[in-house]
Structures are given as structure tokens and as C-alpha cells.
Design a binder for these strands. Sequence first.
DNA 1: AACAGCTTCAACCGCTGTCTT
DNA 2: GAAGACAGCGGTTGAAGCTGT
Length: 277
Amino acid sequence: MGRAPCCEKMGLNKGPWTKEEDQILISYINENGRGNWRALPKKAGLLRCGKSCRLRWTNYLRPDIKRGNFTQEEEDTIIKLHQALGNRWSAIAATLPGRTDNEIKNVWHSHLKKRLIPQQDHQGQAVRKTKPEQGTNKALSVEKPKFHCQDSNSSPVKIIVSKQEPGTNNQSSSLQYSSSDDISSSLSFTDATTTTTIPDNPTEIYLTNSGDGDSVSNKHQELDQDIWHDVVSSQDHSLSPVLHRGGCGFNPFTNDDINFWCDLFTRTEDISHLLEF
DNA sequence: AACAGCTTCAACCGCTGTCTT
DNA sequence: GAAGACAGCGGTTGAAGCTGT
């Protein structure tokens, strides 16, 4: 893997951008689009490396950048997502339109982290896992997770664990989830009414959010375009990489949805253990 | 007014992932 | 499959501004 030569080794400018440089970059991108960052500075006549141009554009010059202080709502979102995702700033930024990963990272380190330090005794505790029962009826439960949901939407959301292609209802089980409280209630794999048996030896598992009122198929279409397009193999017991690929880098959801998915992310490790068929 | 310490944030660095050949 | 090129990410840095003494 070759690495791009450093700017200074090529006699290029470093440090703060001048207004003239900004204007050149803006004009060039407005006329020609982003294209190849590496080639851009040469074509635009900038003595900067492509990396520097990309950073300047994405973090500062982009027209959809929202400047100014973060709202309380934005800060709360960052805190929640950071609890769920860790330092995955780009994934967090994807849920906050107009905010950049760099900005969020800075806000986190300068404001939010400090604010949270006194609360650490009460949050972020390790999740205690409950082993699934032995035998064919693998009723599953998860004890009080670390993520604290502050929303009051009580509509249950289901995760369908199916043996079939998404959209078909055969041999599926679901993880019932309610975002109404601090998630102190246990979670279990259920069908519509009762705890059910996970299909024996499924060859493939699909995760589908049936949503609250959304049809399975419609919801799945959305998800399929983002993070859920990968089939989770039951052999490798690794849900996390699949979820990690998409992270929160999508934005078709409302805040409630984001809360839900991020909560789900915190559980993926649990789920991967729970799905040991 | 001058200085020191602290905070903020734009920018850089080095690494990884993805795509192309 | 290997290697190169590139984009993007997260950690870190350092200059500028702010605040307290």
C-alpha cells in the first residue's frame, strides 16, 4: 500500500487556509464537482495536497455546513450515540445534518466528555449476559443493558430473526423492543404472543425491523439499502461486523429510530452470543 | 497592562478500507 | 490474489482567543 507523499515534502502549503485559497477551492468545486481529490489542487491551481482540500471542503466550506453552537438536542444525540458507538465520529455525524465529524469530535472533547464524567458511576456499566436455556426452546433474555433510552415512545419495535428471505414470515422469531423506559425490562425472542423457539439450524439469519406500524417489507427496503443488506451467517456468530459496516451512517430514521438502532448496536455482542444455535 | 494557564477548533498525520488494474 | 492509488476516519497538535490573577 503506497501512501501519499506529505504536503511539505512536495513544497505545498500547510496550515490555515487563506480566503483566496478558500475561494479558489469553492469556485473549482462549484464548477467541476469534487471528483478526484488528489488531482483537484493541481487542476484548481492550489498549492495544497488533495487531503487538505478535502478536509477544508468537508469540514468548513461545504454549503450545507451548519455553523454555530450545538443545540441541547444535538448534544443529547451525540451523547447517546457515543455511548452506543464509541468514537465513531463519522457515524455520529451522519445523524446530525450539517455537522461534521471533526466538529463533533471537538465538541465531545471540549464539552460533553467533561459533562459526563460525574455520571460515569451510574452509566456505562457492563452488560451482564444471561446464557440461553439449554434445549430446543431457546428463550432468550438480556438483563438491564447499559444504554439509557430517554424517549417516551412506547411503541414496540420488533427485530425479525428469520430463516427465510426477508419479507417472508416463515420460521421467524422476533426480538421485541420497547423504547418507552430505561430498558429495565428484559428482552426476549417472541412471536406475536409468546416466547418461541428459534428455528433449528437456520442456514441464514436476516435482521429486519418491523417497525411500529410500518410494514415489514417497506421497512426492510429502507434498511436493506443501508446496513441490513448483508446476510448474517449463523456459522460465524458475528453480527457485530455487519452492524459495524453501516454503523449509524444512514439517516432515513427519526430520532426514535436512531435511539432504537443505537441501542441495538450496544446489544449486538449479546445477540451474537444468543444466536449460538 | 502583563503574564500564565486554559479552552477551542482548524488542520495535520498516520492508518485502514475500498476500488482498480 | 497482489499491489498501487485514493478516500475517509480517528487521534493529535498547535495557534489563537479567552479568562483569571
